[in-house]
């Protein structure tokens, strides 16, 4: 599969995503400068982590005006895949490609640590290689990952099974203690109605090699390029 990795000024997970996708998972990956508009050649677009435009004003609020974002919206409208990781998730929310908003962590500190994620829906293009209810161990690294949305949106996300990951304890129980940032319903990742745009705060690209502490991130990334046994249900 051919991945385009978008680079905004201030992005820093671009290189990590490139390494994970190309060197570790054997896919094609290419950087896309945020001022480029031509992204037709890609099957999937990655909006990586970092501090685009320093996250000044509000996370992702400036990046969403970059020329590439119009093309990303068109790419998504064609049903092709988009994954926004960390800052990428924030940008997708700002761009209106995903509902809701990421606020400052409830404890007001930056948090870099390993968390457990329960796979809430394994019948999607991003999770179909996971077992139902599988617990994935993935790192987070953010100051503003506190997901929020109005009650109607949350209801809709729940009803349509668009919440893909929730922060949980090691045993898979979704508890307040397992929530690292105050997100409503321990939400760590959501997708759009059509099921082709994912936003998540944790960093799957950081855990695709045993030497670095775990390979659960590969479950998410490889779902994107592995054939699905049954068609996705959004």
């Amino acid at each position: 599969m051919r991945f385009g990795i978008v680079v905004f000024p201030g992005t820093w997970s671009d290189v990590d995503c490139h390494h994970a996708l190309e060197k570790v998972l054997g896919q094609q990956a290419e950087y896309v400068w945020h001022k480029d508009r031509d992204i037709d050649r890609f099957d999937a677009i990655v909006l990586p982590g970092g501090f685009s435009y320093g996250d000044y004003l509000r996370c992702g609020a400036i990046a969403r005006f970059s020329p590439v974002m119009e093309s990303v919206a068109a790419h998504a409208a064609q049903g092709k895949l988009v994954i926004g990781i960390c800052n990428g998730f924030q940008i997708l929310c700002e761009a209106g490609l995903l509902p809701g908003q990421l606020m400052m962590n409830d404890h007001l500190e930056f948090r870099c640590s390993w968390v457990n994620l329960r796979v809430e829906n394994n019948e999607t293009r991003f999770t179909h290689t996971a077992r139902k209810g599988q617990v994935l161990r993935v790192p987070i690294s953010h100051g503003e990952g506190n997901y929020t949305a109005d009650p109607e949106t949350i209801d809709e996300l729940e009803r349509e099974r668009r919440i893909l990951f929730r922060y949980c304890a090691e045993d898979g129980k979704v508890t307040p203690g397992a929530n690292p940032n105050g997100s409503i319903g321990n939400i760590a990742g959501i997708m759009n109605e059509r099921g082709n745009v994912l936003g998540m705060m944790p960093h799957p690209e950081r855990c695709v090699e045993t030497l670095l502490g775990g390979i659960d991130g590969a479950v998410i990334l490889s779902s994107m390029f592995s054939p699905m046994k049954t068609p996705a249900k959004a």
């Binding site: 990590d16 982590g49 930056f110 948090r111 870099c112 640590s113 960093h203 950081r206 030497l211 670095l212």
Partner: peptide, 23 residues
Amino acid sequence: RQYDHQVQTNTVVPPGGDAAVLR
């Protein structure tokens, strides 16, 4: 935990040990 110690995906032994190890 307030510092990103994993970005660049080289950190083999994170902070808290006698020394950090990077590949």
